[in-house]
Each structure stands twice: as structure tokens, then as C-alpha cells.
Amino acid sequence: MQQTKRASIATQKSIAHPKLHAQLRQYKVHKALLLMLIPGMLYYLLFHYKPMYGLLIAFKDYRLLDGVMGSPWAGFKYFEQAFSSAEFWRVFKNTIILSCYKLIFTFPAPIILALMLNEVRCLKFKKVVQTLTYLPHFISWVVLAGVIINFLSPSVGPINMIIRAFGGDPIYFMGEKKYFRAILVISSIWKEVGWGTIVYLAALSNVDTQLYEAAVLDGAGRLRQTWTVTLPAITNVIVIMLIMQVGKILNDDFDQIYNMYNPAVYSVAEVLSTYIYKMGLEQAQYSFSTAVGLFKNVIAFALVIMTNTISNKVSDYGLW
């Protein structure tokens, strides 16, 4: 009954809207696919869009008992509070600098490692290296920070032992601003490079070995094979990862920085997330941190849309 009624409305309307009619036809043709999509879309509706009203907290003086809707409007007060503070822009700059470093150095690391592993012919060796490199992923930054501070210590750390063995003066890496960003970048590579390799290795296992054979027939050396066969096979994944990485440009790794920084390096190490955390410690700063979060994510979303558009034009790959 319901169905026929709707169908008749559809036919009535289709006279006026031939395009809509065509679309409905498309829906019918791909009914199975659309049905498959239902559970996922319901999930997004229920667990993402339903609580989305929480974003309004950024524009409200949030009071716990009154709820989001009942709290009084604050307009752009919290945005102004953030933007008018010199500290905010300082940490904003720090975040961007750090993210750019990570984009340039941390992002390609697992790709290079995956390609190197791909060259290894001894399967056992390959597996052992893979397993060992992925281990640090499971160690939290709290613990890792302690290990790193010890590792770099001027008095007992192995790095400085080596420096001293060669007659150099020990360097207090953790206590000097000029080293701190490098330490953050290198230690994040250290922790995540093996773990990050997995997705590329999975993509590499998709490469048709016939392509290599063909390349060899064409007289391509190994480097050339990597360039003409291996890399193109994983470009798809690389592009997606890159777009997402660009979206994270304002997201810094709170746990890493919070556990590793110290007063001597605050001026380069304080980033948005540690800043918000400290602000939040004073009192329940829900409105303020939501406002900063919203600001961050609007930029991130815009960047992702931009990168995606470029990527679609250049490489034919993209999120949508």
C-alpha cells in the first residue's frame, strides 16, 4: 500500500521532474548496493550525527546541568578569547611547524621501509624485521619518553657515550630548543614506522608479479622496477594516506609532547593540544576547548577538500 502510493507520487512528479525520475530508476537498479549501505549510514546517523549538537558548546556558556540546549548563548566569545591571546598564535605556529616536519619526514618513512622490505628476498629475515619494527607501537609515550630521555642523557646515554668516545663534548639533547623538534620527529618515526608499513605491505601484496616479469623483459633494473611497477601499485594508498595526513596538520600528538617536553623547550614545544590541556586544568573549559577544536577541524576539513580536489585532478585518486 505504502509502496504503491509512493510509486504513484513518484510517477506524478516524474512528469514534472524527468531527472528525478531517472534518479529513482538509478536507485532501483542499485537497490542491493543501497541496502548494503543502510547499516553503515544508520551507524553514522546514530553515533555521529545524533551527538553532533555538542558542537554548539563552542558558542555557548556551557553549564553542565542545563545541557547543551539549555545553556545560554555566548556567541563568538570563546573564539575571540582564543584568537586574542598571543599565546594562542604562538602555539598555533608551533603546531603547524611541527606538523609540516612530520608531513615531510614522518609520512614517507613507512613507504620507504615498505619498499626496502619488499626488496628483501629472505622471507624469514623480512618477517623478523617487520615484527621487531612494529613493537614500539605498543609502548605508550609515558614509558617511551623515559626511555628516550635516558637514551639521550648527556651523562649516561649511549648516544653521548659515542660522542665522547670520538672526543666530542656531550650534548644535552632534551634541554636544548634547537634539537627538540628533531627529537619529536625522529622519535615518532621510531615508534610508528613499522606499524605504518603494514598498510603499504598489504597493498604491495596486490601487485601482479607478471608486471615484474614484463619489466625484466624490457630490461628494467631493480630500481626501475620499483619506480615503474611497485610505486604505481601503491599510489592509491599513498594518496589516501597523504590526504588524511594533511587533514591532521593541526592535530599534534598530545601524549608524545606532554611526556617529553620540559621548561627549557616550552617555547618551541607547546602546541595546541598541550595548551588546551593546561587551560582545561584550571576549570571545566568545555566551551573554550570545543571552540578551539572546531576552529582546528574547520581548517582541517577545508584542507582535506582542497587536497582531495587537487589529487583528483592530478592523479585520479581521491576520497570522493
Binding site: 534518479q23 538509478q26 536507485y27 542499485h30 548496493l33 543501497l34 549501505l37 553503515g40 549510514m41 553514522y44 553515533f47 555521529h48 550525527y49 545524533k50 551527538p51 553532533m52 549538537y53 555538542g54 558542537l55 558548546i57 547543551v68 587533514g247 568545555y286 570545543t290 577544536g293 572546531l294 577541524n297 574547520v298 582541517a300 576539513f301 582535506v304 576520497l319 570522493w320
Partner: peptide, 25 residues
């Protein structure tokens, strides 16, 4: 060829960047 594929994708990607936060969840 999925109808409105880009809209569905956009709606999904949107949730990666915007969420209601801890209390509404």
C-alpha cells in the same frame, strides 16, 4: 555508479573532523 556516492562519502568524511564531543556521546 552508486547514486549520490559523493554525498554519502562526504557525509561520512565529515564525521572524521566534526564530533559532538565527550558529553553528548
Amino acid at each position: 555508479y552508486l547514486p549520490h556516492r559523493n554525498i554519502f562519502t562526504m557525509l561520512i568524511v565529515f564525521t572524521m573532523f566534526f564530533s559532538g564531543g565527550m558529553i553528548p556521546s
